[in-house]
Design a protein around this nucleic acid. Structure first.
Length: 565
RNA sequence: CGGGGCGUGGCGCAGUCUGGUAGCGCGCUUGCUUUGGGAGCAAGAUGUCGGAGGUUCAAAUCCUCUCGCCCCGACCA
């Protein structure tokens, strides 16, 4: 491709709408343009990247035995009512009516349609297993689209669905997909990690998320360097080994005027933050619950909801109605009519500090059993770095990640709901065991950039770069020698099936360099009169500081080696 | 859906408080010069100031209502 015949519309200035690096760079490098909130056009340059990701995903899915198809984006409501998701999905599901006033949805995923297909077509166990997938546009009316393509409303996802005669075979395919996803993300050139994820109400033995590691990721991942344990922080169990120490202090009420947070109180009293207890009031079924976590820990709302049921945070008014003090001075003592749930760690604390339920006062030397009744205990906090690994193998570390893949054992959730059965070898009707497997294709593009960029722009991993090599001629329009060398190299590389971009624009060299860096093309060949006189081209990888000379005649073989590496 | 902020040429912004003929930088067009890291000079083009209504001799500016977008907020590829 020559830039003169391609659409490149890079920008020097950063659009005000973009907050994170990948979003800014995708706009500046002219990969995407926003049309509406969370809805983007992929420009030619951006689409090339999407296509490269798709190609790798497709190749590995096919190799793994899955079959590609395409299901409709617009799907009739009846199927969704049958599965129950018409009611369950909520406002993220985009619904609309056709001219006959019939209800339709824009697909956020396609379990219903594939299950409908399977129940009509896969009538015999002889046809099982079967795994269908599509790479297609999805729509989710996110409450808050953000970060450009990272969390858009419209996006491209690979969604696959497998059908099995029994659970054992589902588990076999699940492992197959775990391996396949690992191959895919490895081939994409990304640093990633597979982590255990919430199996939710569906159950089954497994759900794993695949995260691209990046500091800006929205998810926190807990992992153990000493073992292969890795889980979403939302899920990771917080163990609390050890026993409670005996009380050594008397309980005392101490003045803490204006000190509302555990940090402030600990600083005032000159004690370790780990001696304090944080009290959070929530409302569940019109019943106030007080959740207690250690001062240096944070409440895990997902775990807490599992422990006590769905809740909302109590209002200041509700807090005052039951307790005497405002939020900031509340504590478990004298909290009449409030159910107290302590984190496992809190239950092991002795001589701790908590709010006195009186404005301006905290209690010190508080002890369970002696000063207040033993609490109900649950795991309700987020794990932190240094916590023991739940598998007992060492200590946890925490990194941030961007979820780009999720595999799931659905079991018979949809097949049972939609009466999708097959005849087994005994002639009995049985519901399919199902698995589903997603990869966020467009999100991968953003995640790859988030993980690979510098001050100059994007640094694409070679497998998904829009072009593998760019040729930057110095004076293409002026120097016949440069033009001839560039054109020859360009066609030589094309013959090698190397994805090459020749920047033949009539711009000053600085502009060309800056644009190629911004776009993130991994390999660059510069051709100028100076080098050509000595028979050399200049090679520079995107990450390199400086270029190096390569004899003109060896450029093709040199690049072939670099690309294979 | 709460909370905060923003809508002025393609992009980034000033002007709004204190009404008085719409400006700057980048980009774009043309010409000349320049040519190894986002060039210089000159001449140009591009605006219903998000929209509607109101106040006023006069509205980007004041008032009302709307629409859109961004950021922060509890299971998402």
């Amino acid at each position: 491709m020559k830039t003169s015949r391609f659409f490149i519309a890079t920008q020097k200035e950063v659009p005000a709408e973009a907050e994170i690096a990948s979003h800014r760079l995708m706009l500046r490098a002219s990969l995407i343009r926003r049309l509406s909130a969370g809805i983007y056009t992929f420009l030619p340059l951006g689409l090339r990247i999407v296509r490269k990701v798709e190609a790798i995903v497709r190749q590995e899915m096919n190799r793994a035995g899955a079959m590609e198809l395409i299901m409709p984006v617009v799907q009739p409501a009846e199927l969704w009512q049958e599965s129950g998701r018409w009611q369950a999905y909520g406002p993220e599901l985009l619904r609309f009516k056709d001219r006959h006033e019939r209800d339709f949805v824009m697909q956020p995923t396609s379990e219903e349609v594939i299950t409908e297909l399977a129940r009509g077509e896969l009538k015999s166990y002889r046809r099982l297993p079967a795994h269908f997938y599509q790479i297609q546009t999805k729509f989710r009316d996110e409450r808050r689209p953000r970060f450009g393509i990272m969390r858009g409303r419209e996006f491209v996802m690979k969604d696959g669905y497998s059908f099995h005669a029994d659970y054992e075979d589902l588990q076999r395919e699940y492992r197959n997909m775990h391996d396949t996803y690992t191959r895919i993300f490895t081939r994409l050139g990304l640093r990633f990690r597979a982590v255990a994820a919430d199996t939710g109400a569906i159950g089954g033995t497994g759900s794993h998320e695949f995260h691209v590691l990046a500091d800006s990721g929205e998810d926190a991942i807990a992992f153990c360097p000493q073992s292969d344990y890795a889980a979403n922080v939302e899920l990771a169990e917080a163990l609390a080994p050890g026993t409670r120490g005996a009380p050594r202090e008397e309980m005392k009420k101490v003045p803490t005027p204006g000190k509302k947070t555990c940090e402030e109180v600990a600083a005032l009293l000159k004690i370790d933050l780990k001696k304090t207890v944080k009290s959070v009031l929530v409302m569940h079924d019109d019943q106030l619950h007080m959740l207690l976590v250690r001062g240096d820990h944070s409440l895990n709302e997902i775990k807490a909801q599992k422990a006590i049921g769905a809740f909302r945070f109590a209002s200041e008014k509700e807090i005052q109605a039951v307790l005497h003090g405002p939020a900031g001075y509340i504590g478990p003592l004298g909290a009449k009519g409030v159910k107290v749930v302590a984190d496992r760690r809190v239950a092991l604390m002795s001589d701790f500090v908590c709010g006195a339920n009186e404005e301006g006062f905290h209690l010190t030397g508080v002890n369970w059993g002696r000063d207040l009744p033993e609490p109900e205990v649950a795991d309700i906090r987020n794990v932190v770095a240094g916590d023991p690994s739940p598998d007992g193998q060492g200590k946890l570390e925490i990194v941030r990640g961007i979820e780009v893949g999720h595999i799931f054992q659905l079991r018979t959730k949809y097949s049972a709901a939609m009466d999708a059965t097959f005849l087994d070898d005994q002639g009995e009707n049985r519901p399919f065991e199902m698995g589903c497997y997603g990869i966020g294709v467009t999100r991968i593009v953003a995640a790859a950039i988030e993980q690979n960029h510098d001050a100059k722009g994007i640094i694409f991993p070679a497998p998904i770069a829009p072009f593998e090599v760019c040729i930057v001629p110095i004076g293409y329009q002026k120097s016949a020698a440069v033009r001839e060398a560039a054109d020859k190299l360009y066609s030589d590389l094309q013959k090698e099936n190397i994805d090459v971009l020749l920047d033949d624009r009539e711009e000053r060299p600085g502009v060309l360099f800056a644009d190629m860096d911004l776009i993130g093309i991994p390999h660059r060949i510069v051709l100028g009169d100076r080098g050509l006189a000595a028979g050399n081209a200049e090679y520079k990888a995107r990450r390199d500081e400086k270029g190096s000379d390569v004899p003109l005649g060896q450029v093709v073989s040199f690049l072939r080696e670099r690309l294979a590496a």
